[in-house]
Amino acid sequence: MSGGVDSSVAALLLKQQGHDIVGAYMKNWINEDNVIGHCPWMQDIEDARAVCDRLGIEFRVVNLMQDYRERVVSYLLDGYKRGLTPNPDIMCNREIKFGVFRQWARDHGFDAVATGHYARRTELADGQFALIEGADKNKDQSYFLTLLNQAQLADARFPIGHIPKPDLRRLAAEAGLPTAAKKDSQGICFIGEVKMQDFLRQYVPDQPGPILRATDGREVGRHPGLHYYTIGQRKGIGVPSNTDNQAYVVVGKRADDNALLVAFDAADAPGLFQTEVRVHSLQWNASPVTSVQRLEGRVRYRDPRVAIEFIPEGGNTALVRFEEPQRGLASGQILAIHDGERLLGGGVYI
């Protein structure tokens, strides 16, 4: 339980269904390094506790701070130092929520871990489980579960995946849950309302370099460090285009001379759009795709599924060809692989 309305209603529904449940807050981050930003973990714990009191269930706080630093924060910072664009939320779900925390639950005699994700899980005829998008497409969070495996999915429960968000808030209000009107949280998974740039500034030293125009190599400015930027970024570059109705966009990060490459945001901007990409570290929650197939991919959270040709290359890597060019694909980000609403797995952009 995060202290938000989604996990609160998840607990409510499980209680109504007759399950024997315990509410648990994963204490992963307390902003002990004084990173700029609001990290409301104390309020979240009190809100989660209040919901459990209302439901008449036990509440526990599980300290996973060391595991979170080792498995998520280290991954995040190492990725940015190497010029990648990591996804800490996906890694948090795989390594912490359905990793370390799932193991803690099993060690303490629990059968499953339920969360407030907008996703659905269905049992198949062969006893395996399928991961399905949430019914409310505006709130679907299946993308953040892309790297779960079948064993993790078997122990997962998503009680609210079939409920539209307005109905969920109504259920919370009718049950008198203290979180019924609480705003949804934004920010890094369990780090709180901390801007990524402020977080990186605390841990990754600045390494200034030139901002070059990709079309002709002309220097148009300076940047404080490549880790502050990602492919496709328009805001915060800090360089005016000096051209009417044109704006610069990041199209590349070059490690050998520490150069940030920009171009005017247009279909012909070099490196901005890609028709194919390679992915590595493939993880499946279903049977691995081992032959060339026409599937669908979600290139980032909130983007629609798009048609792809999936071409396995062995060694947990694959070539992915897009039917339509895709904008701003950055190394380190995650591609979710779908068969319709069913999420099969995913991989990391090379």
Rank of each mutant, 00 (worst) to 15 (best):
N31F: 03
G221S: 13
E309C: 11
F273P: 09
T230M: 12
D107I: 01
V262L: 14
A286R: 12
E276Q: 13
F199V: 12
T275F: 02
E174F: 03
L282D: 08
G209P: 10
Q16W: 04
A10K: 02
G161H: 00
P159E: 02
S185D: 04
R201P: 07
I334T: 14
V35I: 11
R213L: 15
V320L: 09
P288H: 10
N149S: 04
R213V: 15
Y75P: 03
T317C: 13
I160P: 05
A180E: 12
V289G: 00
V113F: 07
A214S: 15
P86K: 11
P164F: 10
L319P: 02
L260E: 02
G127K: 15
R106S: 08
E324I: 06
I191L: 12
I211W: 12
L12E: 04
D256H: 14
K27C: 07
V22G: 00
V277G: 11
N285S: 15
D89Y: 02
L260K: 00
E193D: 08
V249Y: 15
D167L: 08
R294G: 11
S287A: 12
M1F: 01
N138S: 05
L212A: 10
G176S: 13
A259F: 08
A307G: 06
V51A: 01
A336S: 14
V100Q: 11
C39S: 15
K97L: 12
P159H: 02
A175Q: 05
A267K: 12
D184F: 01
D256Y: 12
L168K: 02
E32M: 00
M1H: 09
A175D: 08
A105L: 05
F98Y: 14
A156L: 13
E123S: 08
R71E: 04
E174L: 11
F310P: 03
C52S: 10
R60K: 13
A247S: 15
D256S: 14
D303N: 11
D268P: 07
S287I: 04
S281V: 04
I163G: 01
L64S: 01
Y349V: 11
D111M: 09
V289I: 09
D184C: 01
W41S: 03
G176M: 11
R213Y: 15
K253P: 01
F273Y: 15
Y75K: 04
N245S: 15
T317L: 03
A259L: 09
M196E: 12
K81L: 07
A173F: 14
G192R: 08
R201A: 14
R254T: 05
K139N: 04
D78G: 06
R102V: 02
P208A: 12
G83W: 01
G176C: 10
N93M: 06
R305S: 08
L272D: 06
G217A: 13
Q141K: 01
V250W: 10
A50S: 14
L200F: 11
E341C: 05
P288E: 11
D44P: 08
L153T: 03
A24D: 00
D107F: 04
A181M: 14
R71P: 01
G232A: 15
D136M: 07
A175S: 02
P304R: 10
D33F: 10
I211S: 08
G297F: 05
Y25D: 10
V251H: 09
L13T: 02
Q274C: 06
L335F: 12
E174Q: 14
P40N: 12
P164N: 07
I237L: 12
V348I: 14
E193I: 00
G134F: 00
F158L: 10
P304W: 08
L153Q: 03
A330E: 15
L282V: 03
N87D: 13
F101N: 02
